[in-house]
Amino acid sequence: MQVGPSQASTSTPIRERFQIKSKHWLFLMACPFLVLVFIFSYLPLGGWIYAFYDYRPGIPLSKSDFVGFHWFTAMFSNEVQRSEMVRVLRNTFAISSLGILTSVLPVIFAIMLTEVRNASFKKIVQTFTTLPNFISWVLVYSFAFMLFSVDGGFLNNVLMSLGWIEEPTNILASNQHTWLAMTLWGVWKGLGWGAIMYIAAITGIDQELYEAAKVDGASRFRQIWHVTIPGIMPTFFVLLVLSIANFINNGMEQYFIFANAMNMSNIEVLDLYVYNVGITGSNFGFATAVSIMKSFVSLFLLFLANGLSKAVRGETII
């Protein structure tokens, strides 16, 4: 064995030898995990092939008819389908737009909270407002059910005992204001959590800036306007850009859980539509085609948002 003597001589050759032996060893250790990534993230891309076949569950793909771009053109081919797509896209855009509009609320909340001087009040507010972020949509729906249901729900009982309404109204199974209701649930769940980043950003602002503003005679509002807001703009901008990139990915859990026969026409966003058509309706080919379109559009939006970020801040997000 020659290893012994050469190791003793100088440190550089040892390290080189170490690296040559170890670079593959490092890869081998990472390999099982990379295989998992491949299986669960890349392999499903192969499933895009179903968008080009008239595949029905139970019949193998080899026996299914190749239909080319049929499912893609089917999205807009006839009047009924076209209005269906328009409805789903309108729901998606409306809910996402409301989401972007309400993204200033965590900023306002964070500013309000940092203006509070009583430490224990601040702590209590932060603890309870962050909590809803950690419960699932199923639990949120359970709360909604108890508070707003038509028989024995809290709100109906309060309003009736106050004599403001005669008959209980079924708020959850209503087609009115569905977009707004979904947005408000999102705000209820996410506001406290969303503010954490901004609170941290405000804490990071140099205190000397406030001192200087005070010396110049700035009021509390002026300090907020000229020091706090510019201080958190970069954080706000990054999150705004990310929400643009996710404009058509509302996810489906919230909408799936809150959906019912009454509100379906207004709550059905793209992700829920894919589920309803694909899993419930067993039309795998069409649902996959919609997914593919969605992937390309969100990829485009991601690059657009990235370009926007580069142009405005000189920094990329990906």
């Binding site: 890869f27 990472a30 669960f40 993230s41 192969g46 499933g47 179903y50 694909g278 899993i279 997914s291």
Partner: peptide, 30 residues
């Protein structure tokens, strides 16, 4: 570990999966 074989490539291979998703049906079928 800088010396890992193909580190930059594999790291991107991993991170980029945050930004795409094949969709519900292909995932279900896999």
């Amino acid at each position: 570990k800088q010396e890992m074989w193909g580190r930059r490539f594999w790291y991107r291979f991993l991170v980029i999966t945050m930004y795409f998703n094949a969709g519900l049906i292909p995932w279900y079928l896999i």
